[in-house]
Write a protein that binds this DNA or RNA. Structure first.
Lengths: 226, 226
DNA sequence: AATTGTATCAAACGATTGTTTGCCTCCAGG
DNA sequence: CCTGGAGGCAAACAATCGTTTGATACAATT
């Protein structure tokens, strides 16, 4: 039986548990019970609990997460459409995190509460996703805009998306459960964030006007930074 | 000796430890050793470790955190100036979180990894800060804009600010240490986020054009230091 | 003076943790 | 048939955790 070999079964059981509880709170006993293996199997095959964690994260990384941030786009898509595609891929994945595969949750936990082991893995992954967003931005901003300004624009867009996940616990306290259920689905948030960001970039109408009313085009110039 | 009474000394010692390690990882032994009191003092005065945690959060809340989000503004401040003041208060406090008082770090930890106990405390606190931002937004958007749209605008602004804290670990991996040190100080980020948000609201020039090409100072808004 | 209640202390308790220990079975190579 | 190593097993180990205990000191009250 090499298909359900013990080390693979342990990793399969450890993934969701590590993802749900974190490294410290997860117990070897629960993992082994879930995997249906003996308690001593973890230390036999992986040396220690830490060794199991490294093996689990290492397997979670490349298999499923490589280009999830970069959805397939039609060839002739406009920058606005590509930006919306990026935001939607990010938002939908973040909001469905609870139901998502454990690989994603484990990676997300590594972001907010990092284990020193996995720096290179994360660096490679997030640089790829961030680069895809930068490529979109580069097409719509002044080519002479400094790199750090373009980075900040990208971070503003990513920040809006991520906030709906990292603040899952306080957003209902602020807007209420009813409004949350009615107006905070993935597609609506994508509309808002895309519209907000396109307006900031001068590619769309400003937010803040009620639907149906006409808005004047003001302030076409830029401001000089200090 | 009511000045250095044992319960007060325990809370003083427990605050930084809870803030640094969280409820689970913090140990009663370390707290008591730091406070210079006996191990049994926690359960004697607070009933349990949980009781101590509640008392600690309860004391952290009202004393120092009530209106930190709402800096004092001059009476005739424009909405742009008030928005910049709000962003600056939030950004500067988030970025200096490591050096900040333990009360702030403890509250921030409750946001990302909440303990079910403190819901009401947090709700009251964040509703106050969020209300201050909403009051600014209400002055510049169409009065008929639905409430949830105004909420989303406020969340977009808050999200940009918070992201620089919650992604502390991956931002240097993306932009590099040099750029981080050069262009991501509190004031520069305040400039960027304020400019980005004002542009999205139609109150300022769009971001994305290089500085120094052609200046046209027709927009009246200008920043003000807090 | 005797009593009561509060506060502190060292010590131990019970539970849970990651890890280690012998002993068992199995099976391919001699 | 014998043998030796790999893998699996129940059990125990050592450390740490929050909590409890019983004794003691001290102040206020009766």
């Amino acid at each position: 039986m090499s298909a359900d070999a013990t080390p693979a079964r342990i990793i399969e059981a450890a993934g969701p548990i590590f993802a749900a509880k974190g490294f410290e709170a997860a117990t070897v006993r629960e993992i082994c019970h879930e995997a249906g293996v003996n308690l001593a199997a973890v230390n036999y095959h992986f040396g220690s609990k830490e060794g199991l964690y490294v093996a689990t994260v290492r397997q979670a990384h490349p298999n499923r997460l490589e280009q999830r941030f970069v959805p397939d786009q039609p060839a002739g898509a406009t920058p606005s459409q590509r930006l919306r595609g990026f935001v939607w891929a990010m938002i939908s994945r973040l909001l469905e995190l609870k139901a998502a595969e454990w690989q994603w949750r484990l990676l997300f936990r590594e972001i907010t509460d990092p284990t020193p082991i996995c720096r290179e893995l994360l660096q490679e992954h997030f640089r790829a996703g961030f680069g895809a967003l930068l490529a979109i931005i580069d097409d719509v901003v002044d080519p002479e805009l400094p790199l750090h300004r373009r980075h900040q624009i990208a971070l503003s867009i990513v920040g809006q998306c991520v906030y709906y996940r990292s603040a899952t616990n306080i957003i209902p306290m602020i807007v209420g459960e009813d409004e949350l259920a009615a107006h905070y689905k993935a597609e609506m948030l994508t509309d808002h964030i895309t519209g907000f960001s396109l307006a900031a970039l001068g590619l769309g109408p400003p937010v803040g006007s009620a639907p149906g009313s006409n808005h004047r085009e003001t302030c076409p110039e830029r401001r000089s930074d200090p």
